[in-house]
Design a protein around this nucleic acid. Sequence first.
DNA 1: TATTAAGCGAGACGGTACGTCTTGTCTTGGA
DNA 2: TCCAAGACAAGACGTACCGTCTCGCTTAATA
Lengths: 199, 199, 199, 199
Amino acid sequence: MDTEHDKTTAVGRPRSQKAYEAVMKAALDLLKSGGYPSLTMEKIAKEAGVGKPTLYRWWPGVPFIVMEALKLHVNTEIGLPDSGHLKSDVREYLSRTFRSLLEGMDEIVCSLMAEAQFNPEFAAAFRDNFIFSRRAALIRLLERGQQRGELPEDADLELIADLCYGSMWYRLLNRHSTLEDPFVDNLVSYLFDSPRPKN
Amino acid sequence: MDTEHDKTTAVGRPRSQKAYEAVMKAALDLLKSGGYPSLTMEKIAKEAGVGKPTLYRWWPGVPFIVMEALKLHVNTEIGLPDSGHLKSDVREYLSRTFRSLLEGMDEIVCSLMAEAQFNPEFAAAFRDNFIFSRRAALIRLLERGQQRGELPEDADLELIADLCYGSMWYRLLNRHSTLEDPFVDNLVSYLFDSPRPKN
Amino acid sequence: MDTEHDKTTAVGRPRSQKAYEAVMKAALDLLKSGGYPSLTMEKIAKEAGVGKPTLYRWWPGVPFIVMEALKLHVNTEIGLPDSGHLKSDVREYLSRTFRSLLEGMDEIVCSLMAEAQFNPEFAAAFRDNFIFSRRAALIRLLERGQQRGELPEDADLELIADLCYGSMWYRLLNRHSTLEDPFVDNLVSYLFDSPRPKN
Amino acid sequence: MDTEHDKTTAVGRPRSQKAYEAVMKAALDLLKSGGYPSLTMEKIAKEAGVGKPTLYRWWPGVPFIVMEALKLHVNTEIGLPDSGHLKSDVREYLSRTFRSLLEGMDEIVCSLMAEAQFNPEFAAAFRDNFIFSRRAALIRLLERGQQRGELPEDADLELIADLCYGSMWYRLLNRHSTLEDPFVDNLVSYLFDSPRPKN
DNA sequence: TATTAAGCGAGACGGTACGTCTTGTCTTGGA
DNA sequence: TCCAAGACAAGACGTACCGTCTCGCTTAATA
């Protein structure tokens, strides 16, 4: 798979692969050393040995660069498990998703979610890339279970998906506990196991 | 109990109530007209007719002012319902909580959550005031239900609370649906009603 | 000699002598430790343990306080020598004047001269106290010598006085040499001794 | 020889001549309308339609800008007269120097001298540009006269130069008389003509 | 092979907000 | 009535980034 950052127009000097890689590396290095809020276009340009106009030619701002660097870093292809059992599929899928975000990337991911609150243009890109795609995949998983009869026909799948990802983000954003496997187990158990309280 | 912004030291000129109110009003006005990202200390000072040092004397930065203005605006005392039934108590409590945030305040609330990702000093204050206090109240409600036998003795109350607030925040932050009463009803139903899927 | 800073109106609480002395001491201490440019009303007030309004009640600003402190510090009464000889009187008078300014006070004196360029209100006070009074005394000395026949009847005494003080200030302000006694000797010799160059 | 404000590094965007000229013009305009003490970096930036960082990129502060504007305004090249006669050369040179400063520029010049008392960094630049260069030129004139025998071999030329410029600055700074030609005539006469008082 | 259009680095530009500092005025309660 | 303490409105300070611009230099496909 080639990195598809091209917009080349076939004539004139082609985009510099070296500059692209330097920018990605600089972004990750600076993120590690100073955290997202200290990241600026100016610092990235200097660290990468790249001119500011080059940055602005290819990215509209800091969060777009960070998102791209993050996508390179986390192997973005998760794949839908298909064991034939809803609960274990969901457990597997969530476990993979959470892990992919938590190899030291959690602060960065939170920063991008935060940035999305301030920057509508970025919000659209971020949600497409990181939020809605994963949510849609989870819903597809749930649909498969529903078709197998593992969920009632009138189950609100969107709600279930929001419960999964919502609790994850809530814990991430407020830092009040971790997202290790026991959390996933408890979550899946609570959402899919009987018995429920009888009211 | 009235919100006491004092810290006054009894000696010297007392804090100006007029300036305080002008700042709160200016913050809300500017939020309405331009949104959180356009809010700056400088604009607040100018709009309120107040010197910048006065702002910095009482607040460390923009988000602290916004949080205080928000607390004045949303009547922060929600009170724990106590009908004797877990499900209706939770429904009532969540419904009130969500409503208090959604009278046009949702963007501001999201902005504060975002700000908390960048600003650790503010994060502590914000979580104490807006996140953990509500979460703790909900857990108290769940404990009452648990003592009544409406939840299993080994139920993970923290998980349940995170499911409630997590799904709310997830929808808020990603803007993909509303938090009206039907959502609360579905949420409470799913979390507390049988039947569950049999695995 | 009493310090004549009074404006007491006989009724109400009298001016605090303690506060006055604390202000003078604080001004001199701060001058020694940080130099004139670092002096502010605020620091003087804090150092003296005095309220800012008290300062403003008695002095219009920093340079007035410094000038008053300086007058306390340099014994301002120089007295006109009267040996019967113009040259030695002038030498004696200039030597005393210069010495009184140069016991570590030269930077402060230059600062006041500088301040007078920016602050017309202070300029008037400063010139009356430090410039014109000394210049007038020197001219009186020259007049005595003129009456004794030691200077031509048409000599421009103002010019001679300006040559004396001017060269002093020029050296002070530009720091390019000192004002020790050899300078006074050379100055007086050049101004009052034959032979002159014949043109 | 044109005044070269460049320091340009040949790489990157070259310095904007337009901005430079706008700053010089703004500084002079503001000096005329409000005087030196009211001049601030902020006002110059606004008046010139220039960003503050541009100002700080090229000048360390207000007095440096003023000095540069002043140099543009007074044709700084005076040239050493050489009539073969010390007295008339000195008279000519002083007369030109004084006139160049006094076409409405005297307040500004005094302000710079004052500023030099507070700001050591500026003091060095100011003295190099305005004080010591002129003083050195005058001393060169005196040396020529001395070589011609118009001054004694042991004459203190530095003292004579300080008498000339000192009396000028003393009158300028204290505003007690003008520097018109009669002053120059009297000064030169007194310094270089016999008869002297016999002591 | 020569042309040429686009990408590149460097860095200056006009702006805006930052958080601090000082000014001179005011408003308290205590002496 | 004066004092200390200190809050207040005003506004300049010097810095950091923003996103745009103007340079002169590659670079590689095209003519």
